[in-house]
Simulated scan of single mutants.
Amino acid sequence: MLEQAEPVGAPVTLRLTGNDSALLRNSAENVKNMLAEIEGTKNITDDTYEYTYEFVVNPKGIKTSIFGISNYELQNEISIALRGRESSTFRDNGKEYPIIAESDIDTKAELENLMIKSQATGRKVLLKEIADIELKSQLPVINKYNGELAISVYSDISDGYSSSKIGSELGQMLKDADFPEGIRYEFNGEPEKIRENFGNIAVAAIFAVLSVYLILLIQFKSFLQPLIILMTVPLAIIGSITGLFLFNQKLSFVAMLGMVSLLGIVVNNAIILIDFINSELEEGKTIKKSCIDAVNKRMRPIMLSTWTTIIGLTPLVYSGSALFTPMAIALMSGLLISTVLTMVVIPVIYSIVMERFVN
């Protein structure tokens, strides 16, 4: 059920770490083969780079000094020969286009026969006479994580499949596999990011509940009545989860955001009821009579305000958006069910708690 969190690159991501590049590459290939065996995976790839070949030029210190060629001049001449240099500018209809002069050096032998000119003496000499040239393979990018070499393996998932389930299957396959010593792995895909985000949402929800309680405490000058009002929060959560289940939606990150947003909405109905009950009590009515009158007289405005909100959210439900649809369903169902339950649960709890408190 846990999907649709923040963008993480791929729903299923496995990070491999170690100090042996060859073992890491082999392990990454094995993981890719495992993913290919799991139903529902597609676009399996990793973030490794292919080896590239580079010319490594090591100047012969004595020879370069004899010919009066500095290391800077040597580097500059080689750079111009291999990468080219802007020699002029072509102008056409007010636009400028650089003209790049490039050589056709492709092999080690051609580079060795490159003529290097000394700016001090004006003499020219073959590159191979003043430097040793090697052709070496190197990685253009080396990924690291916590000081170790790292390779991440990615996989998208087909429609109708769960990243959590695929991750569990891969985890079981990794446990059964004979992983090389010194190679470690950890999941870093969608489910892991969701758990991290849910923790942040939980902190935000707790802070929101405490803030609402403090405001109600100041307003009602009572410790018990704000707690009764906050009983609408679990009612809203029950409603949101029920709505997501009925609409076959996952308990996603955006759905959780919708549920947190409900914290400041659903308490309004309870505030109206409790405030009206208090007003009735001040007129000398009993607690039971005050609760019944509050429900009878406040039901219509409460239900009207709820339905206008639900109607306003309806277009988002049928928008087909993976972002807005779960959030709208969580808001609508949580608001509707909590409103209906509030009209029953809150007066009952108020009656029980306040009668016991008075006694």
Rank of each mutant, 00 (worst) to 15 (best):
Val233Glu: 04
Ile100Phe: 02
Glu54Met: 12
Ala330Trp: 03
Gly199Ile: 08
Gly312Glu: 10
Glu3Met: 08
Asn19Gln: 12
Tyr72Ile: 12
Ser168Pro: 05
Ile337His: 04
Ser152Gly: 06
Asn43Ile: 10
Val348Glu: 06
Ile272Lys: 02
Ile206Phe: 04
Gly122Cys: 12
Glu50Pro: 07
Glu54Phe: 10
Val260Met: 01
Leu335Gln: 02
Glu29Tyr: 07
Ala131Cys: 11
Asn26Glu: 09
Ile271His: 00
Leu23Trp: 03
Ile194Leu: 01
Lys42Phe: 08
Thr17Trp: 01
Ser79Thr: 13
Leu230Tyr: 03
Pro234Arg: 03
Ile229Gly: 05
Leu341Gly: 09
Ile292Asp: 08
Glu148Asn: 07
Thr89Asp: 09
Asp293Cys: 11
Gln75Met: 13
Ile105Leu: 06
Gly61Lys: 13
Ile100Val: 15
Asn197Arg: 01
Thr309Leu: 11
Gly40Phe: 00
Asn269Pro: 07
Lys42Gln: 10
Val153Ser: 00
Pro140Lys: 14
Gly160Asn: 06
Glu169Tyr: 03
Ile194Glu: 03
Val57Tyr: 01
Ile352His: 07
Ile238Gly: 01
Leu224Tyr: 05
Ser290Tyr: 15
Phe220Pro: 12
Ile78His: 03
Glu77Asp: 11
Ile310Tyr: 04
Asn76Tyr: 07
Phe187Asn: 02
Phe324Pro: 06
Asp132Glu: 10
Ile183Gln: 01
Arg91Trp: 08
Glu148Asp: 04
Ile99Ser: 06
